[in-house]
């Protein structure tokens, strides 16, 4: 169970995506491995408001969302907690967006469509670092 630490506690994930199908697929990829989805948000503003009320080890963040996009939301969350681990999870991943994401402190990037092993590997790696 890759979603469990050595002490048996689950790795906590916050999933931010305007697509309920995408959030469903994130759950489908992570929950069988023991990860727990502790919060979901459908846009950046919801994510920033929800973030202080939960304790997520990793935030998965879509980019193109209504109200507030994922890059601005990631910046706002990093302002609250600079050590928060964030993975950008998006169908849009051109060089300019990746550069922008890195400049805002986003820890890693995962392109959609993603394979379960791919996103799990990235979560484990950024937590180890």
């Amino acid at each position: 169970m890759k979603g469990l630490r050595a002490d048996g506690t689950a790795i906590r994930i916050m999933a931010v995506d305007d697509s309920p199908i995408s959030r469903k697929m994130i759950k489908k990829a992570l929950e069988p491995e023991g990860f727990v989805i502790v919060g979901e948000a459908a846009n950046g503003k919801e994510a920033v408001e929800l973030y202080p009320t939960i304790q997520a080890d990793v935030v998965t963040m879509d980019v193109t969302m209504p109200v507030m996009d994922g890059l601005d939301a990631a910046s706002a969350i990093k302002n609250i907690n600079s050590k928060q681990k964030i993975i950008m999870l998006s169908a849009m991943g051109d060089d300019d967006i990746i550069k922008d994401a890195k400049s805002r402190g986003i820890d890693d990037v995962c392109a959609k469509p993603f394979k379960p092993d791919e996103i799990i590997g990235k979560i484990i790696r950024i937590l180890e670092n």
């Binding site: 697509s19 309920p20 199908i21 995408s22 193109t64 998006s90 169908a91 849009m92 991943g93 051109d94 060089d95 300019d96 392109a111 959609k112 469509p113």
Partner: peptide
Amino acid sequence: DVIMSGAELANIISGNAITDINN
């Protein structure tokens, strides 16, 4: 779910295509 699945597939297809074009 049918509506949202179609939306997500179109979003991913167009996102991947535009990523290639931008790069």
